[in-house]
């Protein structure tokens, strides 16, 4: 287990309960710049809760999350260094693609909002549909717009929850290439997915979560097949 010098995001002793349900049990994870972490696990393992907690949207019952060395609890503004895409797109269906991005860019206090929005639309291949309402975009386009929204402020760490679901093969490749480009510039990525194959090429590390606890956390050495076998063996999936 390599522990690179300065983690971009680090969590220790995370525990999260919802009443009598324990979603996370003493989870510790730290991710460095340029790492791509594939977070896998059966349904209900706590993957989404872990991502929301890392994003600072869910307060852990116990434990801390630090972003660039600063605790989220003491300084919630630290969320600004995080990009997060959940199952939900965070988009307003009644705003256009451009307006959605503009709103996000303004909230993040970016300097040249319009230029940034234009770049983002171009990168996502959405420039021709910039003035269409989010509601009328195709599923693939909406997903690209949601990712553009999550990365508009060029976050140091990107948290993704099932970004590949419902995308066709071409879109999967586009999305993966886009992620790789960000990683090349030093971004850290944590990605929850049921389809590890989609991310496998660029993943540097694999983490398996089961019943709220981390079962294994290793650099990606073995093949996808070995990984899937390991997941199956640990019994949860």
């Amino acid at each position: 287990m390599t522990t690179p010098a300065t983690p971009v995001i680090a969590a220790t002793g995370l525990e999260r309960r919802f009443g009598s349900v324990v979603a996370l049990r003493s989870v510790a994870i730290s991710v460095a710049a340029g790492e791509v972490v594939l977070l896998a696990g059966p349904n209900g393992a706590g993957k989404s809760t872990l991502l929301r907690t890392l994003a600072g949207l869910a307060r852990p019952t116990r434990g801390t999350v630090e972003v660039q060395g600063i605790s989220l609890r003491n300084r919630p503004e630290g969320r600004g260094a995080i990009g997060f895409l959940s199952h939900q797109s965070f988009l307003y269906d009644d705003l256009t693609a451009r307006e959605n991005l503009r709103f996000a860019a303004t909230l993040h206090g970016l300097a040249s909002v319009e230029a940034r929005v234009m770049d983002s639309l171009n990168a996502a291949g959405l420039a021709p549909r910039a003035d269409a309402r989010a509601a009328v975009l195709s599923h693939g386009m909406r997903q690209r717009l949601a990712i553009a929204r999550a990365t508009i402020h060029d976050p140091a760490v990107l948290l993704l929850d099932e970004p590949f679901s419902g995308l066709d093969a071409t879109s999967v490749v586009q999305l993966r290439d886009g992620l790789a480009a960000g990683v090349a510039r030093g971004r850290a990525v944590v990605c929850v997915t049921h389809q590890p194959a989609d991310l496998w090429q660029i993943a540097t590390r694999v983490v398996l979560l089961e019943r709220g606890a981390i079962v294994f956390d290793t650099p990606r050495q073995h093949t996808l097949e070995d990984f899937q076998a390991a997941c199956a063996q640990s019994g949860g999936a």
């Binding site: 994003a55 600072g56 949207l57 919630p76 503004e77 630290g78 969320r79 600004g80 995080i82 990009g83 997060f84 959940s86 939900q88 797109s89 965070f90 988009l91 307003y92 269906d93 996000a104 909230l107 993040h108 206090g109 929204r149 402020h153």
Partner: peptide
């Protein structure tokens, strides 16, 4: 209710606002 659609509220809370 408007923010509940697509959990847009989370998008606002993710910003340093």
């Amino acid at each position: 209710l408007l923010e509940r659609e697509n959990r847009a509220l989370d998008g606002i809370l993710m910003a340093p606002v």
